[in-house]
Nucleic acid binder design. Structure first.
Lengths: 254, 254
DNA sequence: CTTGACCTTCCCGCTACGTAAAGGTGTAGA
DNA sequence: TCTACACCTTTACGTAGCGGGAAGGTCAAG
């Protein structure tokens, strides 16, 4: 396979100017020049360009890239693995920035008042950190980073009032659930009320509610011992009971 | 509460040169100059600098920042939302790169052979953008960005073999499903086999499989007329039948 | 009164290209 | 065969967001 500048540039998604520049600085020389002086690239150059773009994407300077690629001891596999780690790290960094923007959006929508915001900062920080510690890793694995970050952003964006509301709701849910558990009937009135409270509580953390996700979370309350421990604290079996109630509530039990 | 360039630069963690530059371009003027022409900054300037650094951290250009902070009619919310979109786009790009790196790792281990074209798939904004135009908006609204992006990435990362496999699987699913539909029993052997084929098919597009998500998708096949139309093409009611089969298959029917 | 740490403006340099300008080349259709 | 047009070439200047240095003025301490 032989490529001219334009062809290769289209293949790789860079500009012809970039390829000429890389030639100029000696980063990527064409395989040969044809009789008219056109740059002709071969498959070896394609591979090299790919490597270059990998590192460029990471923000490595072109000079450094040249060094890295010219090193005879260069371990491609190790470099790729390291590269992957860097990409993942960058992704996490990006997620942080996104959370930051979400938070600012919340502040600008007036959901937070600046004065309150400062007083409240410690609380929220702690809340998010706790959240991370408790559920972060697994929740990220389960729902993906987006959902977790969106949730964190929502918590950070809460006003003091909202924070009180959500803690009150949590309290009320616990009480209602304990009462419902005594009846032993997940389809009964108290249990369904608890499920509805749980939905309300959830809407403080999730940007979009769906029956499927609600039911999925309920299942996780039983599968994940940390959640189970939380709900079963006073009365073992409560987590499973809540799950059953939610499955009925969401209609996901048919 | 008055600062010289050095003091303020230390406070904010930027260089004095940066502050002079910001003065030069009219982004951050000192409160006043003292008798010797030294720049003196006050608390208002400190606040403004913090704002500036915040936007800069997000990668906003200094010109844009100037607009944001000085123009009273500037739509801060719109700018932030746009910025958020950019960040999300950037993350999507990253996801593609990660997929590409993983694939390259596989290629180097000899598990697959990559064509020249494939080597650049992580960098190919345009291809993905085309996809976006066709299906993006609605699917994003329905499943969320992450799912769509991951799916795009996976499709882009497919080898020709894999692509053939997935189309064969799709064909087989259709056949099995048609046969199962005749039995009328979603819990029967053929229907459950169809549900399993559907799961296999799904795994070509999703990075993680969960029963909940599978069940959720099945429900959507009935709720969304475009999907319903696809499955009901030859035999109306097939989409609903598939949903029932999947609900049983995933155990989400209890 | 000196020393040294500040401050000032002016200006050139850097990265990784974008964007003409001025001119040569390759090929498809009239 | 001529012409249009898309490609190629080199040269060269412009860009953002400063870094760094030169040349010179200022301020507080010893």
């Amino acid at each position: 396979m032989e490529y001219t500048v334009q062809k290769l540039s289209q293949l790789a998604g860079v500009s012809p100017r970039t390829l000429r520049y890389y030639d100029e600085i000696g980063l990527l020389k064409p395989a040969r020049l044809n009789s008219s002086g056109y740059r002709i690239y071969g498959s070896r150059e394609v591979d090299r360009l790919q490597q270059i773009l990998f590192y460029r994407e990471l923000g490595v300077g072109l000079d450094r890239i040249k060094d890295i690629l010219s090193d005879p001891d260069f371990d491609v596999m190790a470099a790729l693995k390291e590269h992957r780690q860097n990409l993942l790290a960058k992704r996490r960094q990006l997620d942080l920035l996104i959370t930051n923007v979400e938070k600012t959006l919340a502040a600008n929508e007036g959901r937070i008042i600046m004065a309150d915001k400062e007083k409240f900062e410690g609380f929220k920080h702690r809340l998010v950190e706790e959240n991370e510690k408790k559920f972060g890793e697994e929740a990220r694995a389960r729902y993906g980073n987006e959902a977790v970050d969106a949730s964190n952003a929502k918590v950070l964006g809460m006003t003091q009032e909202q924070y009180q509301e959500v803690t009150q709701l949590e309290q009320k849910l616990k009480e209602t659930l304990a009462e419902a558990f005594k009846t032993g009937d997940p389809s009964g009135e108290p249990a369904q009320q608890a499920a509805d409270l749980h939905r309300q509580w959830l809407c403080y953390f999730w940007n979009s509610y769906s029956k499927e996700a609600h039911a999925g979370l309920a299942q996780m309350y039983v599968d994940d011992e940390r959640f189970t421990a939380y709900y079963d604290e006073k009365q073992p079996g409560t987590a499973a009971f809540l799950r059953d109630a939610i499955l009925i509530y969401t209609g996901m039990n048919k």
